[in-house]
């Protein structure tokens, strides 16, 4: 009589069932499992503990784990929904789902607002805007005089801060995005639509088929 071993698939802490994540997001079960392949790769690049640490996130984005980048830091903080300093699998999938081409536009607009609200005051202030423009210039090795940076910030506030109270609130932000739709293009990642093509290794391992 033959003998076989049933090896139970063990997942790291923070793992969530793809079927649950697929029911909450625009991803199919197959795509969530493909994202798990990507997550495993990212979360084991420095410490193999099934969690994405900030250094691992930076390593994936910049090929170095010690590059300071304001926007990457903000994205990491928003992905870290539980605010415990790491990104778990469920957080990774839920956060990335906002970048899916089929995700609701309102979610993309709200996510970007939170990203730019550096101090989480519920508004984007002129000072935060200046900080972001200065950081972006610095991170791209560009230099503009402070006067020019002030002009850019002033011009933006003139356009967006329609209540003239020195800050952009949620309502003003939505109106501003309506007039400048190109600014939310960065909230869509086309790669998320063809995930199982990007990670074909998964299809070999999966018993699930969306086709």
């Amino acid at each position: 009589m033959g003998c076989f071993c049933l090896k139970k698939l063990r997942h790291k802490p923070g793992y969530e069932a793809p079927i649950n994540l697929a029911s909450e997001t625009p991803f199919t079960v197959n795509e969530v499992e493909a994202l798990y392949d990507l997550f495993k790769k990212l979360s084991s690049s420095i410490i193999d503990d099934g969690l994405i640490h900030k250094e691992e996130f930076q390593l994936a984005l910049f090929k170095t784990s010690n590059k300071q980048n304001l926007f990457a830091d903000r994205i990491f903080d928003l992905f870290d929904i539980k605010h415990n300093g790491v990104i778990e699998f469920g957080e990774f999938v839920r956060s990335l789902s906002v970048f899916h081409p089929n995700a609701p536009e309102a979610d993309k607009i709200a996510f970007l607002f939170r990203l730019y609200d550096l101090r989480q005051t519920g508004c984007i202030e002129a000072e935060e805007l200046k900080e972001m423009v200065t950081a972006l210039l610095c991170e791209n090795n560009l230099s503009l005089s402070e006067d020019v940076v002030d002009l850019i910030v002033e011009k933006t506030m003139m356009e967006a801060d329609t209540k003239r109270d020195g800050k952009i609130d949620d309502e003003e932000w939505k109106e501003f995005v309506k007039k400048n739709p190109s600014i939310i293009k960065i909230m869509t990642l086309s790669d998320l639509k063809e995930l199982t093509l990007a990670f074909p290794s998964f299809v070999m391992n999966s018993g699930v088929s969306d086709l």
Binding site: F71, L136, I152, S182, I186
Partner: peptide
């Protein structure tokens, strides 16, 4: 011509903000 753009356009056009690299092999 950065002054003709608003700050959010500048940010969105820069490479500072791109998650595409997460998907690079």
């Amino acid at each position: 011509k950065p002054v003709s753009m608003n700050a959010f356009e500048l940010i969105s056009r820069s490479q500072s903000f791109s998650l595409d690299k997460l998907f690079e092999k």
